[in-house]
Design a protein around this nucleic acid. Sequence first.
DNA 1: TTGCGATCCATTTTT
DNA 2: TGGATCGCAA
Length: 671
Amino acid sequence: MIEEELNEQQRKAVEYDGKHLLVVAGAGTGKTRTIIARAKHLLQQGVPANRILILSFTRKSAREIVERIKSEIGGITVEGLRGQTFHSWCMDVIMNNPKVFMHHEYTLLDEEDRESCVKLLCGKGLRDKEKHVVKPASILEVYSFAINACCSLSDAMRMKLYDNASREDPATLKSIELNKPVYEDIIKRYMAYKTVHKYMDYDDILNVVSKGLKKNAEARRFVSSRYDHILVDEMQDTNPLQYELLSSFYERCHLFCVGDDAQSIYAFRGADFKTMHNFTSVVPQSEMMKLTLNYRSTQEILDLSNWVLAKSPLHYDKELTAARGKGKKPVVVTCENEWDEANDVTEKIRRSIVDKGAKYEDNMVLSRSLYGLRTVESQCISKKIPYIIFGGVGLMQSKHVRDVVSPMRIVANYKDELAWMRYLLLWRGIGEVSASRIINNVIEEETLDKCLDKLAGNGLQEEITLTLRNISNMQFSPSQAIAKTLETMEDRLKELYKDEWKWRKQDFEVLQEVALGTAGIQEFVSEYVLDPKLETTVKQGENGPEDACILTTIHSAKGLEANICYLLKASPASFPTPRSIESGPDAVEEERRCLYVALTRAKDELHIYRNVHSIHVDPQSEDPTESLYFFNEMPDELVEKEATRTARLNPEMDYQGPVVGFDVTDDFDFG
DNA sequence: TTGCGATCCATTTTT
DNA sequence: TGGATCGCAA
């Protein structure tokens, strides 16, 4: 057992014995450690493990916390201790209380299903009253925001479609009022469609429980009496809907919430970090505490992070101090373009291994977007550097896996129209029209078997029915069902994916592995929507998956740390993005917090990349991408500067400052 | 109606 | 870079 020392602030929080507590914890101040210590403290006080609930925002951190508790707490039984996302917890609540919520036999829609659903309802070429094209995705965005932020449709439209324009702007208001019926119509039809087909989307999971508990005092009493303590991680990402949900537990449970307002980067999902500032007035009988001592980074890295935050017009009241003391200054690397950047990053990674004896996993590459990781990824491949991508499209979302899962979904719930559609369209000779006809013909039957009999009567290719029958006969061995499905579908899949099939096929071995952990088709298909266990993609497993460098989006990096961090594309027009500039100051500040999250991941070394053109940026420029650039006017003493060879050879580059850490041996290998 | 090829498009972030 | 969409031929 690792008995890590808690500092005074942490200990006070951990041993808090009032009702509700919010711990405002800066980056690297031991947020997770505090939650774990709290859980441990409660267990030692004799609180049964099954009366403690740990909630987090992402699956990754929920999983990590529970794993760490299990490994760090010896001697006490942690059986029944649960760490879940808000979504998976609410799903459990729905399943355990079927009579209260009445949604236990609904099929979950994932993001893609949901979009095809709305596409269906929109028809093609839908336009609003001002003749602008309305994209199904933006309807969903507005709808989802309204639910999560608990706001009106008009407000959601204003935030999402009108760049968060002022509430008073008459032109905007007029436009919203004019177009609202268009959105309202589709949304209503979407909601009706979900009800008819017994579908539930991500937002419904929270909404059903939150509203259900709020309305029904009896249910509230019953459900909340299941727990004594609720520990909430990443509190700054909690949106109004989740607040509402938690409010049903104020009375009977103790809340222990941990978060950092400066790391709030989920405003696009309705989270508002300012709510955290009001915690003590919103939550009755609550108190607030702070953690300010940083254990992760060296002072130099924190100095830069503090500077970024201090330049914000918002007041974060944060000045982190490094418990570890001095180290190396962050390095700003100027490069020519993204290939030059990727080359330099991968070269540094390679050298950290060869020269310094580091492991691959000591290296973390951070990017604003998934897209931005591409170049580094391809360099990793050509240089044979093993890597893991966090925040990537999981295996479960990939096309070929969904293809194979679709017949399984049909068997799990043969009324699942969307699954039928996807499955039938796969086959040669069946397009949208025939597929709809077949579905209408078949779906009214009373049992799956009758359904299949009727399907067979349609004179279709034999494999279409055979695949479904096979799965139906293997209801309780999903792994074998996958194998059998591959047999009957392989010819068609080969035809569809051509030479890609060779590598796509390998994914199914992993999928079968996952399926072994579930009791049946039913469980397999519903679990994968909520918790696709394969959300990371490991490639280039030269040293096996145990040691690989981490490529991640900043959003997925929250809670992670690494000795050496590389922040990509920290150039103007990237920090902040033009898009956020258009959306106003709030969005720009969210970008700043994003940058802050990125900087504070680094323990020892931080390399910040920007392109050559960033050097010419004029803070007085008319162009907001230049004037708002976060690294404008950065004091020289905070960082070291260097340039890649290519950038340096660029004749246009008239950078006068010192070029540090650059010599011939520093260059990359052209051969 | 289906399926293929060409063209154009845009690229935040997550449950 | 690929992805989604559009238009055209079978």
